[in-house]
Amino acid sequence: MKTKDLVYIALFAAIVVALGLFPAIELPFSKVPITAQSLGVMLAGSILGWRRGGLALLVFVLLVAVGLPVLPGGRGGMGIFFLPSGGFVLSWPLAAVVVGYLTERLWGRYNLAVALVPNLVGGVLVVYAIGLPFMAAVANISLGQAFTIMWAFVPGDVAKCVLAALAAVAVRRTHPLLAPVATASSPSRSGTR
């Protein structure tokens, strides 16, 4: 891993923190804040790829774990992982890996419509697939009940997918950091592994 990769990892971990500074909206009854931070998960995956994107979110989860107030409302510390919503934060590294992996597979024919796929699969499906069972276990409720609480977040998440796709397509045009998986042996551009 080159110096450049480390710096990109830190940059995107910081971008996820910065996105948390936008005012969070808390839905009544669930206390799970709607945050722009999951947008950062999609951006990290679709701009950096699976390896660097996943590591960026791993660094973010470490920042939470070591007690820095990097979650919306200045929250942080290990206690977060014991809240019903803790699984969502914990899912982010894997979510970024999935977004990044799919993005790398689709890199050759990347456009706005294609860019939505990794974001929806990694940034929404994976996050809910981990977050909901976690919530069900911590709050001692069924999966269906957990989803009843969380469905209100889905429209916002889909909107974030579109925003991340728009941004990722534009960044790919001017500052591409990935190489298509199929032609991995071809001369790589700046910053590619």
Binding site: L6, L11, I47, A167, H175
Partner: peptide, 21 residues
């Protein structure tokens, strides 16, 4: 508009990251 802020922010910080590395 969200994208009008996000996109220049991403490009500027990526360029900054290149310079830092």
């Amino acid at each position: 508009r969200p994208l009008a802020l996000l996109l220049p922010l991403l490009l500027k910080t990526l360029t900054m990251a290149d310079a830092i590395s």
